[in-house]
Every structure is written in structure tokens, then in C-alpha cells.
Amino acid sequence: MLAHPSHLLAQGFGSGLSPVMPGTMGTLLAWLSFAVLSTRWPEFFTPFNWMVIIVAGFVVGIWACDRTGRDMGIADHGSMVWDEIIAFWLVLLFITPADTATQVWAFLWFRFFDMVKPPPIAHFDRRFKGGFGVMWDDIVAAFYTLLVFAIWRTL
């Protein structure tokens, strides 16, 4: 992880090195960091700034995940969780303000879509390779999660 800065980022500052469910650990890091940063520095971590951070994080994540995948010899190694972090920040940005129960449901739905990869997520996962592919399928999982919430809120 410390061999190159791209590895540190792609592996979620170590959260992706968990021997048990690294994607879930990366998503938990996303949740914790979003909550802490938004609470501790609300004047900086505004919705607009979060969107800038997420877009920049997506672009930098393409590079970091591509480089880390090449260095590890596996394009989408399980220890790379920056994609989960960026995608779950996006989910949290759009559902906030939300109570803890709503955030738990967002976490569960996001993990479900990320693990099961219903169409077209599986298609994107197979079609797009490299850093963009690693990052993009989680953005689609975030979209599905937000779609569930949009439908739920209209009922």
C-alpha cells in the first residue's frame, strides 16, 4: 500500500486491506469520514464542496485504481475500495440530511447493488476496464441506491 501514493488512495488508506469484506470496510470508511468531516467542518464541507470533492475524487480515482491495478497485476483487485468511497459519498450527499436509520438503509442498499451487480452494472463491470471501469460500476450502484430512495420517498 505504501509503495506508491496511488495505492494508498486506491486501497482506501488501508481499509481495503481488511481480510474480511474489504468493499464493505471501504464503504464504512466513506460513511465515517463523510459524517466526521461534515460535522467537524460544516463551513467547508458544504454540499457544493462535497460535489467538487466527489468529482475530483472520481477523476483521481481513475488514475489511482488504474495504476494500482497494473502494479498488482489484477485490474480490479478486491483491496481497491476508493470506488466505494467516492460512490457512497455521492449517495450520502444526496440523501443528507438523513437520520441514522436512513443512512443504514442507504449503506445496505449500496452494498447490495455493489455486490450483486444487477444489469447494467454487471455489463459495465465487464465492458469497461482499467481505472474508469473500477470507478464507474460503483457510480451506477450509487445511482441505483438513489433510485430506490427516490421511489421510496414518492410512496
Rank of each mutant, 00 (worst) to 15 (best):
67 R>Y: 15
64 A>D: 05
47 P>D: 09
153 R>V: 00
30 A>E: 08
121 I>W: 07
74 I>M: 08
134 V>R: 06
155 L>S: 09
41 W>H: 11
123 H>I: 13
140 V>D: 02
120 P>T: 03
118 P>L: 02
63 W>P: 10
46 T>N: 08
130 G>V: 04
75 A>K: 15
110 F>R: 04
121 I>L: 08
144 Y>F: 15
144 Y>Q: 02
36 V>A: 10
44 F>Q: 06
62 I>P: 01
142 A>P: 13
116 V>Q: 05
33 S>W: 07
81 V>H: 15
32 L>C: 08
136 W>V: 14
41 W>S: 14
105 W>K: 04
128 F>P: 00
63 W>C: 14
140 V>W: 05
90 L>P: 11
71 D>G: 07
108 L>V: 14
101 A>V: 09
68 T>H: 11
91 V>C: 01
146 L>A: 03
67 R>V: 12
46 T>E: 06
128 F>M: 07
125 D>C: 02
98 A>L: 01
51 M>Y: 08
102 T>L: 11
61 G>Q: 05
81 V>Y: 10
117 K>F: 01
82 W>Y: 07
149 F>C: 12
81 V>A: 11
41 W>G: 12
129 K>I: 02
139 I>V: 15
122 A>L: 05
105 W>C: 00
52 V>N: 09
139 I>T: 11
119 P>K: 01
99 D>R: 00
128 F>V: 06
39 T>F: 01
47 P>E: 10
132 F>W: 11
43 E>V: 11
133 G>L: 09
71 D>L: 15
56 A>Y: 10
114 D>A: 03
89 W>R: 04
73 G>N: 14
145 T>A: 03
43 E>K: 13
139 I>H: 01
152 W>Y: 15
124 F>Q: 03
51 M>R: 11
86 I>M: 06
75 A>P: 10
101 A>N: 06
92 L>V: 04
126 R>Q: 15
109 W>I: 07
53 I>L: 13
59 V>C: 12
125 D>W: 03
108 L>Q: 07
46 T>F: 10
94 F>Q: 04
59 V>F: 14
70 R>I: 10
125 D>N: 03
121 I>Y: 10
120 P>N: 06
113 F>Y: 12
147 L>Y: 11
86 I>W: 07
103 Q>W: 00
108 L>D: 10
68 T>Y: 14
60 V>A: 14
46 T>H: 11
100 T>P: 00
63 W>R: 13
87 A>N: 10
79 S>M: 11
76 D>S: 04
120 P>W: 01
121 I>D: 04
135 M>R: 03
119 P>F: 12
130 G>D: 04
135 M>Q: 03
130 G>M: 03
66 D>L: 12
96 T>E: 08
109 W>F: 15
150 A>K: 13
145 T>W: 00
53 I>G: 09
52 V>Y: 07
55 V>E: 08
106 A>Q: 06
38 S>E: 02
126 R>D: 07
58 F>T: 06
40 R>W: 15
129 K>Q: 11
118 P>Y: 00
30 A>W: 09
42 P>Q: 14
131 G>K: 05
